[in-house]
Design a protein around this nucleic acid. Structure first.
Lengths: 263, 263
DNA sequence: CGACTGTAGC
DNA sequence: GCTACAGTCG
C-alpha cells in the first residue's frame, strides 16, 4: 500500500513537464527515502535523475519498496487535469497494476481521481559515482535557459568554458559565431540572481544544445541552476526542488573534432 | 574601423523587426552623419529609408564611409539574442568581411558578441527628391496600424482621401465595403493622441494594404506616424525614432481602375 | 489563477 | 499550416 500526499501539487506537474519530452517511459521508485526516478532519454544519450524526499510530503506511506512503470506522456496528461493549487495524492496497492492520482481543490469542493495502468519497463539502474568537478557554476536558471535558446538560433552545439574570469558559452553556425560571457557576480540584491563560479581547474567542454534546451524545461522548478563540469565526465545540470530534492540531468560531452586534423 | 555604441539597444531590435519582413538583404551605410539604409522591398515595389544620426549614439566612430551588406534575417536573429535593456555596439574593421554585434547587459555581468559575415549587395541608391505634398496627416501610430489591419479583413487596397473634414480610409471587397473617417482633433490630453491634418489640396489615392500592413511593423518605434500624400507621388509613411532619426516607407499609388468605364 | 488571444517558430 | 509560448484579460 502506497499513499503519498503532496500539498504543493504544482511541483509534480512541473516535474513532468520537465522530463516528459526527454523520456517516454520510466519506473518511479518508491521507498522509505522518497519518490525517485532514474532514466535514460529515448535516444540513450542523456540521463535524468529525480528525487522527491519523503519529508517533503505531507503524508508519506510506503509499506514496501515498489517500482512503478509509467508512460510519462499519459501521466502528464492526467496531471494537467490538476489545478495548480490542488493537493495531489499518489496511491497504489501492493501488487496492483494501476496507480491512482487524486486531486483535491484547495477548497475541497472538487475531488478528482485518475487511474492509470502501470507498465513493465526494463531499467538498468546505474549507480552514478560521486565525482570531483573541475568547475561548478551556479546561476539564475532563467538566464541559463535564455542563453541556451539564444545560442541554438546560431548553432547546434555549445562550448562551455570556465576560467577564473567567468563562464563563457560559445557556438558557431552558418550565419556566424556567438560568445556569451558571464562574470562571477555575488553582489546582487537577491541571492538567486547571483552567478557563482567555483573553479579548481579551467575546463572547456562541448555539448549538444538540443539536450541543453530540453533540460531547461525544468526552469520553473527553481530560480537557480547548478552546472558541474569535469573533462571527460558528463556535465550535471541540477535544479533543486525546494524542501524536497532535485532533478538532475547528465549529458556526455562531445569529443571535439579539430577540423584541421581530420583524416 | 567602425564602432557605434547605442545605449538604447532596443531601438535597433525594433528597427530590424520593422524591416526584415520587407527586405531580405540590404547595405547599411555608415558615415560621419550616421548609420543609414535605403532599400527596395524584395518585390521591388516599396522603398525603405532608415536614418540613425550619429548624435543619437553614445559613442560614434566611423573612420571612413563604409557600406556593409547584411542579410536582415540573420541580423535579426542575432539581435534577438540581445536583451531589451542591453547596450548594443556595432563593430567592423575597415576592409573586413564581418560585422560584430556586442551586447552588454545593464549590470555588465553578461557580455555577448555575435559575429556575422557581410555580403556583397548591388544597390542603386536612389536620390529621393524633396517634394511638396498635397496633404500631410499626423496620427497615433497604433490607430493607423489598427485601421490597416481592420480594412485588410475586408479588402486588398485602401483609398486614403483627405479633405478639409478629415481623412478617410476606404476599402471594398467581396463581403462588402468599409469606410473609416478620422476628423482633425487636436484637443486631446496628450499631443501624441492628436490627429492633425495639413491640407493644401484635397487628395485621394489607392494603395495595397499588404504593404501598409508591413509598414505598421514599425509602430513600436513611435507613438505617432506621418502620412504624406500627393497625386501621382509615392506616399511616405514616416515613423520618427526619438533623438535619432526616422524610418520612412515609400509606396507608389495604384492607378484607379474604374470598373464602369473599363473597355 | 485560469482562459483567451495573438504571435513566433517548426 | 499547425503547434507552442507569451502576454493580456477577466
Amino acid at each position: 500500500m502506497l499513499e503519498l500526499r503532496l500539498v504543493q501539487g504544482s511541483l509534480l506537474k512541473k516535474v513532468l513537464e520537465a522530463i516528459k519530452d526527454l523520456v517516454n517511459d520510466a519506473n518511479f521508485d518508491c521507498s522509505a527515502t522518497g519518490f525517485s526516478l532514474q532514466a535514460m532519454d529515448s535516444s540513450h544519450v542523456a540521463l535524468v535523475s529525480l528525487l522527491l524526499r519523503s519529508e517533503g510530503f505531507e503524508h508519506y506511506r510506503c509499506d514496501r519498496n515498489i517500482s512503478m512503470g509509467m508512460n510519462l506522456g499519459n501521466m502528464s496528461k492526467m496531471l494537467k487535469c490538476a489545478g495548480n493549487d490542488d493537493i495531489i495524492t499518489i496511491k497504489a496497492d501492493d501488487g496492483g497494476d494501476t496507480v491512482t492520482f487524486m486531486f483535491e481543490s484547495p477548497t475541497q469542493d472538487k475531488i478528482s481521481d485518475f487511474e492509470m495502468k502501470l507498465m513493465d519497463i526494463d531499467s538498468e539502474h546505474l549507480g552514478i559515482p560521486e565525482a570531483e568537478y573541475h568547475a561548478i557554476v551556479r546561476m539564475p536558471s532563467a538566464e541559463f535557459a535564455r542563453i541556451c535558446k539564444d545560442l541554438s538560433s546560431i548553432g547546434d552545439t555549445v562550448v562551455i568554458s570556465v576560467t577564473k574570469e567567468g563562464v563563457k558559452f560559445s557556438t558557431r553556425g552558418d550565419i556566424g559565431t556567438a560568445n556569451i560571457v558571464l562574470r562571477q557576480n555575488t553582489t546582487v540584491d537577491k541571492p538567486e540572481e547571483a552567478t557563482i563560479i567555483e573553479m579548481n581547474e579551467p575546463v572547456s567542454l562541448t555539448f549538444a544544445l538540443r539536450y541543453m534546451n530540453s533540460f531547461t524545461k525544468a526552469t520553473p522548478l527553481s530560480n537557480t541552476v547548478t552546472i558541474s563540469l569535469s573533462s571527460e565526465l558528463p556535465v550535471v545540470v541540477e535544479y533543486k526542488i525546494a524542501e524536497m530534492g532535485y532533478i538532475r540531468f547528465y549529458l556526455a560531452p562531445k569529443i571535439e573534432e579539430d577540423e584541421e586534423t581530420k583524416p
